[in-house]
Design a protein around this nucleic acid. Structure first.
Lengths: 240, 240
DNA sequence: CGGAGGCTTGAGCCCTTTCAATGTCTGTGG
DNA sequence: CCACAGACATTGAAAGGGCTCAAGCCTCCG
């Protein structure tokens, strides 16, 4: 797990991104954290145990999805190392049906009780978490526009653009290529398409010279072209 | 505007729903609020003026939408009286392209600065707002599943179910029927369909005896049937 | 009374799905 | 070292749900 970060690194980064004080940071660092190493496909949230907590990814990728009565699945978010996974889990039962690891990885969790205790005396920390939830909502609404109003090529291209930016932000790209550990069926569940059609779309993107793929590694050969096709503007990711 | 609520009523309701203390409530009531009466179609957010604020609907309906390069529109949320409209507007520039009134109504806003001042000393208030943002995110993700994985009838039925529940919660329904002041074109923009197809879907819902419509008034004649068609479960709305 | 926005309906097309089969890769066990 | 299984990727053919285009109608309002 060469790309793993530490709990301390996670909190430090959060503090830096939100301009938290040294006192705030120390409060975060003092929180009791439980680490778990999970395998690919493992469930991150324990549905039956109603213990509320807030968890984040130290390494590995995860996704959250909703299941429909007819068995269809919609992946509503994908989480990369350094992301919160269940942030609003502090409040109530998870709004999604399942949260699973895409790859092996490490999840850290803080019990809601301990967190609330810290938040009560550190408003700036709560603002930081609130802001993160707002960014999550922003990403949801961007996906909504993508799935509701873009065609298949545009949707897939948009997803690739988003991950290119997010992975670059956490240093998980060596210049041109990055790892997107999702099967085509999972990409389909994230874009509201079928696996067969995702395959054809990726084929088209390859033949147009926009991207190249090798296993689960994506190389973007024509960034401006992909951005244009996706109508992509990274503002909704709430970075810098 | 017989169904208008007051700013005081709004804060009191927020306090009640989140178990805020009397002290918290008084802090909310002391916030300087600007009220604006807007006509149908009026823009709620002033895109050019970067003044950050938090606003909510005292009366009337509004929607937030994203615009795509090709002119397509995706409505990502619809707001009913008593709802926050720009809650995450406290943080940065709005993530949506436009927020407009569906009907004439009154919008109240609190400047971000004044709000932050109160939040710094009232953690429970901030928690309440954060929780509301989490609910907004929950609704986004439910819409994501609807648009990504449900067929047209199911999507429209889902939207109708959601509004039936939300409007009942704020007392904007006289038993069986409620007002949904959206044109079919707007319903289409909210469900990721075309206006023509929404028309046909509504026709089908009428002919199946699930709903009856009169102008913009919707009467649900077969609630269990509509819920079944929509695969609807109101848990994601974060009520009770 | 005229115009504009919204609703309705029909016909044909097309993007995406469905169904089905084949190919590829990887790990496993004989 | 090969046979085998399972998961994933790929491809073709055909069907279909929703879209596009287009016309007609209704209703409200100035």
């Amino acid at each position: 797990m060469s790309d793993a970060i530490s709990t301390k690194g996670f909190w430090t980064s959060l503090a830096a991104k939100n301009g938290l004080s040294q006192d705030d940071l120390e409060a975060l660092l003092s929180l009791p954290v439980r680490r778990r190493n999970l395998g690919a496909g493992a469930s991150v949230a324990r549905n039956n145990s109603p213990a509320k907590s807030c968890s984040f990814l130290l390494s590995g990728f995860a996704y959250a999805s909703k299941l429909l009565r007819d068995g269809a699945r919609q992946i509503v978010s994908v989480h990369v190392p350094g992301d919160f996974v269940t942030l609003s889990g502090v409040f109530e039962a998870p709004i999604v049906d399942e949260i699973r690891m895409l790859t092996p990885g490490t999840v850290a969790s803080v019990a809601a009780g301990a967190l609330h205790h810290v938040l009560a005396s550190h408003p700036a920390i709560q603002t930081a978490l609130w802001r993160q939830t707002a960014i999550d909502a922003s990403i949801f609404s961007e996906w909504l526009a993508a799935i509701g109003r873009r065609d298949a090529q545009s949707r897939v291209a948009h997803l690739l653009c988003e991950f290119a930016v997010r992975l670059r932000a956490v240093g998980l790209t060596n210049g041109k290529a990055f790892d997107l550990p999702m099967t085509q069926a999972q990409l389909a569940d994230a874009t509201g398409l079928t696996a067969v059609h995702v395959n054809r779309v990726l084929n088209a993107l390859r033949q147009t010279g926009l991207v190249a793929t090798d296993k689960r590694t994506i190389a973007i050969n024509d960034w401006p072209g992909l951005v244009a096709l996706a109508d992509f503007d990274s503002a909704y990711l709430g970075m810098d």
